[in-house]
Design a binder for these strands. Structure first.
Lengths: 158, 158
DNA sequence: TTTAATGCAAACAATTTGCATTGTG
DNA sequence: CACAATGCAAATTGTTTGCATTAAA
């Protein structure tokens, strides 16, 4: 799905529930889909403050992020620290994450077999999966190579 | 490993780093290993207030929980809400969790094949795993049966 | 006695919310 | 012009911390 189609979806989404397409929402939407990085609410707010465009308050950043997540345009992910990070997902396929505890780098991975096995595990318990989180924490290739052993700036919870 | 052996380990752990075995630590330790439930720091503090024994403050609950986690006696787990829950792990095998979004129930599951596949996925990216989180959110058997569809008291993040 | 641990209350940090004001549909 | 959205600042919430006091070792 291309950018334009996604914007149309967003407009339709708002219209359907009589929500308004404000300059703030438009700007946030554009910025979120303009990056391929994973970003925190604070980082997005920083972009709003430093780049040019209509003024956006921190509260609106949070409110709009919520809206995007509810609408399925964006997903939030808990990378183990104390703040959530977001990524746009509409038009992308499902994946899980590996987070480097030394440099903070986030890699994506995907394995159909794992997805199947987890459904099987759930079925055994009579459990119906709505969503899942599968996150690996450790050292990325670069940090392993450079012997950046433990405890970098980005630490993991567990 | 039986209870007594674990307590010995805890005592040794403290001794090795010249930490003190206070009545508070002893009480918290006992309580943590006396339950098979998953509990939050607040719940543990509640136990400390309502059950009899030496007085324990909230700060000490948090500090001791930290100590137990660092020592590998206990693990914290993020079940998607805003507070962490804990479980004692020493003497138990590794497992992951399924959390019911309707009633809050936590089930444990384990699949060696998944663990292997995740190591393989990591290797492909040159990533060395230190730890992982694999959590399924959805409806448990009981809630499915009773048609307790969506949005119970316990909600999930994603 | 030395040095760590406790309790208390104040401090924190990410996120949420109340409310008066503004602006889209 | 009605009602949703914004900005602001105050409120929330789980957790952490500074510090004077207490108590293990």
């Amino acid at each position: 799905m291309k950018q334009t189609a996604i914007i149309k979806r967003f407009e339709a989404y708002l219209r359907e529930r009589s929500l308004k397409l404000t300059p703030q929402r438009r700007r946030i939407f554009d910025r979120v889909f303009a990056t391929h990085e994973h970003f925190s609410a604070e980082r997005l707010y920083e972009w709003m403050r430093t780049e040019h465009g209509p003024k956006v308050s921190r509260a609106t950043v949070y409110r709009t992020l919520d809206l995007l997540v509810k609408g399925g345009f964006t997903e939030s992910l808990d990378i183990g620290g104390d703040e959530l990070v977001y990524e746009h997902v509409m038009g992308h396929h499902h994946h899980d994450h590996m987070v480097c505890t030394s440099c903070g780098r986030i890699e994506e991975f995907q394995d159909k077999r794992i997805e199947e096995l987890q459904v099987e595990a759930a079925r055994k318990k009579g459990f119906v999966i709505e969503s899942h989180v599968h996150r690996l924490s450790g050292l990325c290739r670069t940090c392993v190579r450079d012997g950046r052993g433990q405890r970098g700036t980005h630490s993991a919870a567990e």
